[in-house]
Amino acid sequence: MLFISPTEELAMERGEQKGIQQGIQREQQLIIRLLNRRVGEIESSLIDTIRTLTIDQLESLGEALLDFSTVTDLEQWLQNKPES
Rank of each mutant, 00 (worst) to 15 (best):
M1H: 10
M1L: 10
L2P: 15
S5N: 12
T7N: 10
E8D: 11
E9M: 12
E9V: 08
E9Q: 13
L10V: 11
L10M: 13
L10C: 09
E13G: 08
E16P: 10
Q17D: 11
K18L: 15
K18P: 07
G19A: 08
G19D: 07
I20V: 13
Q21T: 10
Q21V: 07
G23K: 11
G23L: 11
I24N: 04
R26H: 15
E27P: 04
E27F: 12
Q28K: 05
Q29E: 15
Q29V: 05
L30A: 12
I31K: 02
I31N: 00
I32E: 01
I32A: 03
R33G: 03
L34S: 06
L35C: 06
N36K: 02
N36L: 01
R37F: 10
R38H: 05
R38G: 02
V39F: 01
I42W: 00
I42G: 00
S44H: 07
S44I: 03
S44M: 10
S45H: 06
S45L: 09
L46A: 03
L46T: 04
L46G: 02
L46Y: 02
I47Y: 01
D48W: 03
D48N: 03
T49W: 01
T52W: 09
T52R: 14
L53W: 04
T54F: 04
T54E: 09
I55R: 15
D56L: 10
D56Q: 13
L58G: 03
L58W: 00
L58D: 01
E59C: 13
E59D: 15
S60R: 15
S60N: 15
L61Y: 06
L66G: 12
F68Q: 01
T70W: 00
V71S: 05
V71D: 04
V71P: 03
T72E: 14
L74F: 01
L74P: 00
E75M: 07
Q76W: 14
Q76F: 14
Q76I: 14
W77G: 00
W77Q: 03
W77P: 02
Q79M: 11
Q79H: 07
Q79E: 11
Q79F: 09
N80W: 07
N80K: 13
K81T: 02
E83V: 09
E83T: 07
S84P: 11
